[in-house]
Design a protein around this nucleic acid. Structure first.
Lengths: 356, 356
DNA sequence: AGCAATAAAGTAAACGGTTAAGTAAAAAAT
DNA sequence: ATTTTTTACTTAACCGTTTACTTTATTGCT
């Protein structure tokens, strides 16, 4: 009942030529005459031939495949990065093998090993919250597999990185907050072991200090990058009756967690507690109030990462390590616009629905 | 500088045994003694061996790999389905090859061909908006590759499907709307060629008719499943000065588009225009007002799809086609709760941040 | 006309594994 | 003590391609 897949050999037999002739013809090799090539292509089309990629990759030793490892997928930030990566890959005739670590270092390691086993031509990775052991990355380097760290980068040398300028982004946001009159500012900082946590946190602290304000240690809470952490951190402060006037959250999900908690308690944003976060998402402008943020252009992160990786793949040993820093911009909506007073924001043009 | 990857042959040479012995030992084949097995495993560990999956899959003719094709990825619905699929695959020692069609039929077809070329063990697909030609799916069937259609299913027989009970979900929602007093109800219906569009639309129409209300054709607008369509459809009605009291949107992004337009115009939800949509997303409860919806359990969709596919893979020819229907539930928040009057909703327990 | 160059194929080997079919030595059965 | 079975390996063949090297016929050049 079920058709076996057509192979080069089937076509060769039918046409009474050798397998190699077919193989060459299908790849427009000059060895084969125009005529024969045309015939072979026609017949293999008719027979419904599709190459066995396992065999091809095995023998050709490159797979035209890129491995991507991310910590989470059902999140706007990674979702849109991934979407762009897929698009760029498609344009360049590469396939993507996507792995999701679920913020688990052990799983991340296994995924990378699998990618190596699959002989991907290169790897883009955004490391998990818990990744501490960088040994596996050394292995990747030793294998000569091009590697780009994206957004979350470890502190090791000799690797390509595409990171957001977390420090400056956070600094600018806090500076703005101070300018409109805030002094009691808290920070939900996530994991400060990772560059993004560290950079944002440092930007916060420096901005405060540079403006002569001391950071209240009770208001600088570490934890994670997800909603749960924002939710709990806020409840903790609330229960202690020790709320700042403004909270700067390390990610947008953390801010959502705060929204959730604030909603449940029955407080109002920004009157009772004001908020700003690092990271933009389409729907922030639809929150009530619309959430101001530091925008990190996900498409640019994805494009740059792919650009660097593809070039690294092309040049091989001749490629020189690149460290890319992506600029952020402050998007002000209805939070953090005036101390304890909400004013309508300018319409947020960037968030218009994207064209098809 | 760069290490070549270790192969079976390297290990065999070092230990003065044959390649086959190593291959068998690593897979705990009974042919090889406990002792030798242990030694071989130890040595290959030390040497950092990792199997070449291309080679393995080529000769073993199964890849332990599942292909997944979805139309979009940076959307909550697909994002969370994918996340769950990855988890289930991981637990079952399968790899996922994810392809994103971007709602493009041509691209979808190419992706499926690639998956066939990659010799995936099975395919899960949610077809694009525009897919009309089902020929490629026949090819998949003929090749004997297990196939599951998920959420968006075509009208062809003899295939596994996991679909949401769109009709009943829509029907119940409209019935509720009618019960609280709405009569002038519009529907942004997306593509009614696809099951999800068709089912939801039919549920809407039948519920209206069964309650003795005629559907106003001006208020039944077809288009797409994205924000842009919701945005534009709403503006169109607004400009024509022909707004219904309540709009039921085919997806959650369409509703977001409406929110966007409503915001920009300066109208209020639900006072000026009320809204309910098909599809749930974590952040809907944080919108203002919190958006009521028909919840489709993404995790269940993902789990069922994987369950059916894995069983189909296991049983092969003996497997009997399965058609799974997933129930929905109505989640009422702050929209569509009382005609032209917003009341606070019960707290939405399901949307508490998920535990780590 | 004679010989090198070129065009259009074909052959052999390799890619790194797996599976099936031997084989020699050791253990068990008669 | 001889045959049979089991144990522990090895050799050969194959998975479906590609690449490097030959072969054969044709063309071009002097």
């Amino acid at each position: 009942m079920k058709d076996k897949a057509i192979t080069l050999s089937d076509i060769a037999q039918k046409l009474n030529v050798s397998i190699v002739t077919v193989s060459k013809a299908l790849r427009d090799h000059p060895d084969i005459s125009k005529q024969t090539t045309k015939l072979i292509k026609k017949v293999s089309e008719e027979m419904g031939y599709s190459p066995n990629l396992m065999a091809r990759n095995l023998s050709a030793r490159n797979t035209n495949t890129i491995g991507v490892v991310i910590p989470k997928i059902a999140h706007f930030f990674f979702g849109s990065i991934i979407e762009k990566i897929y698009d760029v890959a498609f344009e360049n005739n590469y396939e993507i093998i996507l792995m999701v670590s679920q913020e688990n270092a052990e799983r991340e390691k296994r995924h990378i090993q699998t990618l190596l086993s699959m002989k991907v031509d290169g790897i883009i990775i955004s490391i998990s919250q818990e990744t501490k052991d960088y040994e596996i990355f050394e292995t990747v380097k030793r294998r000569g597999v091009p590697l780009v760290f994206m957004d979350r980068v470890p502190e090791i040398g000799g690797v390509n990185t595409v990171a957001v300028d977390d420090y400056t982004g956070a600094y600018k946001a806090i500076e703005h907050a101070l300018n409109i009159g805030y002094k009691n500012i808290g920070h939900f900082a996530g994991y400060t072991k990772i560059n993004i946590g560290y950079g944002r946190s440092k930007g916060f602290v420096d901005a405060m200090n540079d403006h002569g304000i001391e950071v209240n240690p009770d208001w600088l809470i570490e934890g994670g990058f997800g909603e749960k952490y924002g939710y709990e951190a806020f409840l903790k402060l609330y229960r202690e009756n020790n709320l700042p006037d403004l909270i700067f959250t390390v990610t947008y999900p953390v801010a959502l967690g705060v929204y959730q908690a604030v909603h449940e308690i029955g407080l109002r944003i920004p009157e009772d507690i004001d908020l700003i976060c690092f990271g933009n998402a389409k729907m922030q402008s639809l929150l009530s109030p619309a959430l101001s943020c530091i925008d990190q252009p996900t498409h640019m992160i994805a494009e740059k990462s792919m650009e660097i990786l593809l070039e690294n793949i092309r040049l091989g040993e001749d490629f020189e390590i690149k460290k890319e820093m992506i600029d952020t911009s402050l998007i002000l909506r209805e939070t953090c616009v005036a101390k304890n007073k909400s004013i309508p924001s300018e319409s947020d043009v960037q968030n218009l629905p994207a064209g098809k």
